[in-house]
Design a binder for these strands. Structure first.
Lengths: 154, 154, 154, 154
DNA sequence: GTGGTCTAGACCACC
DNA sequence: GTGGTCTAGACCACG
């Protein structure tokens, strides 16, 4: 999957990292049990601080998205249904988004259609890149590190 | 309407303020053209600094939610349809929320139902509170109702 | 001519007033020697404070755009060439505007074309309104005061 | 580049700051990607408050002139062509300036010539000042040069 | 009276 | 180290 970091964004790097990994899991690019890069690896490739990556991973772990094993590194957690605190967060964020949308003139239908689109979006089968290996991180030795502002492939 | 400020929250006070006012407008509690408290008023009532309130108001102004009149303070802006940058923000936030929901086992139907609920939520005719006066802000001299950690009524 | 005041604008009302009158003179809608409304009249019609109008008029007088006679009120000044401080102001403002334009990718040609357009803009002969009288203010008793946000005709 | 702050001017300090930096970029003294002083640095050197500098930087960021990186401070933004709202502002300001010029007896030719001069003004190769070092900001340890009322070099 | 600006100093989040 | 946030109090511009 591809991770893009905007160094000048006002959203903290560790949050960007966390969000992009969540998106990757949600899109199915990162599958259950699949290994993530090591903290050290990711930090080096993305040119960001080790502590920053660590923070993102810790958050992902606390949120139940990944599991961290000292021996085998981090991997995508099995999708147990720990919806605990998430529902509250989801509700409050949706409340705000719907309020803003109503004020800005975006109707219920359009809003729902937009949501549905995101839900129906299939993980575009990226066979071109991951063809042959199971998508496991360790088995793709050459990782592309694009230049510019921190775009990173793994 | 009621504004609740959590002093210990990690989300900045001016963001909380901004969000609550947006929610108030979205719910219809604050109607188009209705006057908001002056920044001094709100700052004093909420027990927060003038600059903090000012920042929230400036953001709301820049986002097109309110207008600030040098003579009479702030009022809810007419709902022009400046959806410009909002759509991008909406899409990116929805993409993240749907991804998280999918992982957490919240299905499309439930998600859409939740959204629909927020959209259909009628501005509960708040006659209980403002019964008797026209709901005008100026006519309710004692609208301060602080409790605990910054709950505030106006 | 038409004067539009935006009460919620961040530019002070007296500056808006001053600018619009300057524009009117520049466009030829207000001709040399033509009378302006009395301060009291204008303040009442526009629904703004008398002091505000007075301030605008004083500035226009100091800048040499109008003359104020206690007996006959204000009228457009003869266009003597008191370019004194104006050239400095013009230069500094143009310096800033050209800098911003260069950065924003607006080229010299386009910039000059824009300036030329404003210079060539003819005072659209508004015979429909001023037909018959010399454009003098006192002779047009019925002044149109449009509603809304302070649009005003004289 | 040199920044001059007039403490007694009626134009707010943060606006002066913003304008001077825009001028610096426009003149080519501040090049794309070049680092600006940190807000603390600039505040201390100029003898003004941190919040004031911060406000100027935030405005420059919102206008797309600079980017702020949490790690390395502010730098001149790549010149994307976000001309969006700028064209409106430019038109209205030019309309006013041309009107004033016409009244003051400054003709179209002179006005255009003035504009052209500003556009053609080359970034005078400032070797005299930075001779020896690469012009890098970090390499000039003592760049403070305050005089009189806030003239400042960096 | 309103909002706008500025100060001096503090604490925190991020990296 | 950086920028982001907040405070308490002051002064000014505007209307």
């Amino acid at each position: 999957m591809i991770i893009t970091i905007h160094m000048t964004s006002e959203v903290p790097i560790y949050v960007q990292l966390r969000n992009q990994i969540v998106l990757g899991i949600g899109r199915g690019e990162l599958k259950e049990g699949e290994a993530l890069p090591t903290i050290r690896q990711l930090a080096e490739d993305a040119g960001i601080n080790l502590m920053t990556v660590n923070k993102a991973y810790q958050i992902l772990k606390n949120e139940g998205f990944i599991e961290i094993d000292r021996r085998h590194g981090a991997k995508v957690a099995p999708q147990e249904v720990k919806q605990g605190e998430f529902r509250e967060k989801l509700a409050s964020e949706l409340e705000l988004l719907t309020a803003e949308s109503k004020i800005k003139g975006i109707g219920k239908e359009e809003f729902l259609r937009l949501c549905a689109e995101f839900f129906d979006r299939k993980p575009e089968a990226d066979d071109t890149e991951n063809k042959g290996n199971g998508g496991s991180f360790e088995e793709t030795p050459e990782r592309l590190l694009r230049e510019g502002e921190g775009e990173l492939c793994f």
